[in-house]
């Protein structure tokens, strides 16, 4: 899965002013930043941070907190954090492809495969890539790891998201 260090920073964006949108994007950076980190109450509560976006992808992370952990002495991320992070990263990736927030219709399904132990780490990162469009749905792949450069993810996800037809009636962007 492609990971572009130019658009996914090692440190989180702290304001929309720092957000670099891909060439040709007509999205409002303030809206993208708000959707990623603030206006989605569940994600704001989770403490989700935006690392970057591209023409087809989005990278977010959540910092470690005790209430997101499990396992007592052998601390690890609680499983429930993974689908929450994957669903949001996939939605953001679709937003970038659509280039129009009004065309995002909703998640249809989400699959998460757990590949290895969710060992405790300073951050849990989700990197989602939307690279398949079939009619009125988009399929998004996501990797979850402690570090966005890690090519051995703790979990992988697959999300199907419904989209609304574009202004000319086409269902594909």
């Amino acid at each position: 899965m492609p990971y572009d260090p130019l658009v996914a920073r090692p440190t989180p964006l702290t304001s929309a002013d720092e957000l670099v949108l891909p060439a040709g994007s007509t999205l409002d950076p303030a809206m993208v930043f708000a959707v990623a980190t603030r206006t989605n109450v569940a994600q704001a509560t989770l403490g989700t941070q935006l690392l970057g976006v591209g023409a087809q992808h989005a990278t977010i992370r959540v910092p470690w907190r005790a209430d997101l952990g499990a396992g007592g002495a052998t601390a690890r991320w609680a499983d429930f954090v993974v689908p929450m992070l994957v669903d949001h990263a996939c939605s953001l990736a679709v937003l970038m492809v659509l280039d129009d927030a009004a065309r995002w219709a909703g998640s249809l399904d989400l699959r998460v495969d757990y590949r290895r132990s969710l060992d405790a780490s300073p951050f849990l990162v989700a990197h989602a890539v939307c690279d398949e469009r079939v009619g009125a749905v988009m399929r998004v792949r996501a990797m979850v790891s402690a570090d966005p450069d890690d090519d051995d993810p703790m979990a992988v996800g697959l999300c199907t998201i419904a989209v609304v037809a574009g202004p000319t009636g086409e269902s594909r962007p």
Binding site: T39, N40, V41, A42, Q43, T45, D79, F80, V81, V82, P83, M84, L85, V86, D87, H88, S91, G106, S107, L110, V112
Partner: peptide
């Protein structure tokens, strides 16, 4: 709970919360 809301305009529960 309010903390489970995803889309504030539709006032629906976040998909990630439902999956979790």
């Amino acid at each position: 709970l309010e903390q489970h809301v995803g889309d504030v305009s539709q006032r629906s529960v976040h998909g990630g919360v439902l999956a979790a």
